[in-house]
C-alpha cells in the first residue's frame, strides 16, 4: 500500500476526521430522534457519516492514482497574518482604535518580503486617520478611540 497522491490522501484524512468528529459528538451529546421526528443529532450525524464515506473515497483514490505532492507550508506569513488579525480584535477594547490598528499593521507587515520601519509607520498612520474619519465619524461605528485607562476620551 503506497500513498500515490499525498495531497488527496491528506484531504481524505481531513474529511474523515471532521466527519467522524461530528458523528461521534452528535451521538454522545444530542438526541437522535427518528426520521419522522428528528432530534438535534439526526442531521449532523447523517452528514458526518456521509463525510466519512466521501473521505474514504478520496483516500482510496489517492492510493490508486498518482497525484501531486503537498506544496510546502510557509508558517511565517501564516502566523504573522493570523497574529495581526487577532491582535486587532483583542486590542480594540483595552487599547482603542489607534493602538489596535498600529499593532495590526506592524505585525502584519512583518509577514511581507521587506519591512521598512518608516514606510510601515506611514501606512499605519494613514489607516488610523482613514478609519477615524470614515468608520468612527462617518459611519458612527462604536469603536473606542482612546485606550481604556483614559477616562474621558477627547477624540470622537
Amino acid at each position: 500500500m503506497r500513498i500515490r497522491s499525498p495531497r488527496d490522501f491528506w484531504a481524505g484524512v481531513m474529511f474523515i476526521a471532521f466527519g467522524a468528529f461530528f458523528v461521534a459528538w452528535s451521538f454522545t451529546h444530542y438526541a437522535m430522534g427518528s426520521a419522522l421526528r428528528m432530534g438535534p443529532g439526526y442531521f449532523p450525524a447523517l452528514l458526518g457519516g456521509l463525510l466519512v464515506f466521501l473521505g474514504l473515497l478520496v483516500m482510496a483514490k489517492a492510493l490508486a492514482l498518482d497525484g501531486p505532492k503537498i506544496a510546502a507550508f510557509h508558517f511565517r506569513p501564516l502566523l504573522l497574518v493570523s497574529l495581526s488579525v487577532v491582535a486587532y480584535g483583542y486590542l480594540m477594547k483595552p487599547g482603542g482604535l489607534a493602538v489596535a490598528t498600529i499593532a495590526a499593521v506592524f505585525i502584519g507587515a512583518l509577514a511581507g518580503h521587506e519591512f521598512k520601519w518608516k514606510e510601515v509607520a506611514v501606512v499605519a498612520l494613514v489607516l488610523v486617520i482613514f478609519s477615524w474619519l470614515v468608520f468612527v465619524r462617518g459611519l458612527t461605528l462604536p469603536f473606542p478611540m482612546c485606550p481604556q485607562f483614559i477616562d474621558n476620551c477627547p477624540i470622537r
Partner: peptide, 30 residues
C-alpha cells in the same frame, strides 16, 4: 502589495469587528 495587504487586513478587521463588536469574531476569522 507591501502597502496594499496591511490595508486590506485592517479593512477586513474593521468589517468583522463591526459585526457585533466582539473580538471573538476576529479570532474566528483567523
Amino acid at each position: 502589495y507591501r502597502f496594499l495587504f496591511p490595508s486590506i487586513l485592517i479593512f477586513m478587521n474593521v468589517g468583522v469587528f463591526s459585526l457585533s463588536n466582539n473580538p471573538w469574531d476576529c479570532l474566528m476569522m483567523t
